[in-house]
Design a protein around this nucleic acid. Structure first.
Lengths: 260, 260
DNA sequence: CGCGCCTTTGAAGGAGCTCAATTTAGGTGG
DNA sequence: CCACCTAAATTGAGCTCCTTCAAAGGCGCG
């Protein structure tokens, strides 16, 4: 059984569980549910839109697409037609540098968008790979553009999401250009914690989807350095780790690593 | 006299000249010329639009804004109302990290856009600082959105520019996360060279607007390392430098530094 | 149970940083 | 026009943080 997001806010947040996977091929199927009743509507594309506007959005989202763990949703150069919203599961987006060096530009979890990079050249400019069996809502871009022309609020909202992606990247650029290893890892943990919390999961205890190597490929450091940094945080009582299981023990002190 | 862009393509390209500056305050004035007759129209917002569409674009651009060297076009937190196109001059966009560390997220020259980061929160999320006395076309965002609702091609084009910014940042993320010093500097020089060439300037000889420190703040390295890398390239006969004057002597070998 | 993948940890090495001194260029005012 | 001043650039020497290389242990899965 695949995990679905427990978006409800309760005093006892659910722990973001471990990823699981099966081995069938990916496929596309009619969307069974709608944005208006989706648990993710407050963190996903519909957030901030009126009931009527969400209705309109619903009207252009006809399909869901399954992607199995380690398979690509799209690859560099694939023709751009749709953007995607993660319904459940998680992805990484990567750009490759000459030899084998891989830079991960982002990890996307439920409620987050994929594919905005494809608009400019009408081809995707990175690879989007599922980190676990996942499902996405398919948003045909032509239809979305049409909708934006008709609905000022949807247009405004979509522009904000695009711009938000630019600003998010500023944060990564700042991290890669200026932070030392401990700052990078602390930033990563706090950011993930905050995003999980917004989705109704515990902010202090969760399971990572990605390996140490993938964290390193995102943060611009080697997997050994990631592992050493986790160990050092653990010695200092900031976190406790058990493979992919992370518990944040002292969030304030973790934040102070940045504020120095 | 301030430099204007010699956009014409000739066999002898003009050398991107040194920056000059006066010391009066910045101000805004009615736009004297229009996109349709602007030398930059093929590299700026209007590129790829029909004559009629450029006409429409013109109809919402009423003002130019002057910004003196070292002054801010906008700062983090300023209310967002407009995006800007550089008419002449050049800018840097910077984000600050706690203490004094500064990360430059981009250098913008004539024909390039500024302010897209402000859409998401309706506040600018970086500082935009003039590197020389500059002038910008003011594009009121509400009007642009309206135009996008009426003109499919303009909408599509603007979406492409936003997405293009996302892709451009991927490039910087890749550079910061994976490249060594020599690769970073070579990438920087080749990129600038290519952008100047697209504007009708020489691709092999130009004057930098920025100090070694600013280059370092952009490339995630210290000014001394930038300087040393320039010196090494010079010893190897790849470039020649004289303060801010750069001549690229062997572009192919410079490219090969990346392709390793 | 054994194999592969992931993670952890150690030891040595190196790329880039820090600190410091010197040179150069451009701007200012006598 | 020249002396002076300041900002920018260059270069050297030593150090540091992260990488590289290597080995061993843990966990999940067939």
């Amino acid at each position: 059984m695949l995990a679905t997001a427990p978006i409800r806010s309760e005093s006892h947040h659910a722990v973001y569980p471990l990823a699981q996977s099966t081995t069938e091929a990916q496929h596309t199927a009619p969307a069974q549910s709608r944005c208006s009743s989706c648990a993710l509507r407050h963190v996903c594309l519909p957030s901030g839109l009126s009931a009527e506007e969400v209705e309109r959005l619903d009207s252009i989202i006809h399909f869901r697409r399954h992607v199995k763990r380690a398979q690509a949703l799209y690859r560099v150069g694939d023709a751009f037609e749709s953007i995607y919203a993660v319904h459940y599961g998680s992805f990484k987006t990567t750009v490759l540098y000459d030899d084998g060096r891989e830079q991960i530009t982002g990890f996307q979890i439920a409620g987050e968008l994929l594919g905005l990079d494809g608009i400019s050249a009408e081809k995707y400019s990175c690879d989007a790979i599922a980190m676990e069996d996942s499902e996405l809502c398919v948003i045909p871009f032509q239809h979305l553009e049409e909708l934006c022309r008709q609905h000022e609020q949807i247009q405004r909202h979509f522009n904000k999401m695009m711009s938000g992606e630019i600003v998010r990247e500023y944060g990564l650029i700042l991290l890669l250009g200026n932070m030392r290893a401990e700052e990078r890892v602390a930033t990563f943990l706090l950011n993930l914690s905050q995003r999980l919390e917004a989705r109704g999961y515990s902010s202090s205890e969760f399971n990572l989807r990605m390996t140490r190597e993938e964290i390193g490929d995102y943060l611009g450091m080697k997997l050994e350095t990631v592992s050493r940094t986790f160990s050092r945080f653990q010695e200092q009582g900031l976190i406790s780790t058990h493979q992919k299981h992370i518990r944040i023990l002292d969030k304030e002190r973790l934040k102070r690593i940045l504020a120095r």
